[in-house]
Amino acid sequence: MKPEDLHYAKTHEWVSVAEVAGQKIATVGISAFAVEALTDLVFIELPKVGAQVEAEQPFCEVESVKAVSDVYAPVTGEVIEVNKTLPDKLEILGSDPYNEGWIAKIRITDESNLANLLDFTAYEKQCAEEGH
């Protein structure tokens, strides 16, 4: 996936939504900007498959040496799959955040939050502002 084709939450998670068998499935990860800002991630606590998550609420944790950061769910739904290879290969969050570095797949149960997501241009603008 290319970053230009994704949508973003203000809290730096990316989302790609696909239709599978009539259901909307969101693939979720954290943006390259966020990975860079979090510096040297050392641990990820993945959500549990089957967990109900709510948009804009924490659903996963990433840790650097001296900080813990929440990852917020960009959509509302049920976690149907998690990237089990991630905990042992955290460096892919940095090297390939938008493909190999995906965190979870969420079956969307409430689409109302999708409208709040930013497109790439808007998200880039936000990052540029935060960067100062």
């Binding site: 641990f43 040496v65 001296k66 900080a67 813990v68």
Partner: peptide, 12 residues
């Protein structure tokens, strides 16, 4: 593994 500890994770 200091992220377990109070000086980083505080109330959690």
């Amino acid at each position: 593994m200091q992220t377990r500890e109070q000086h980083i994770r505080r109330d959690k």
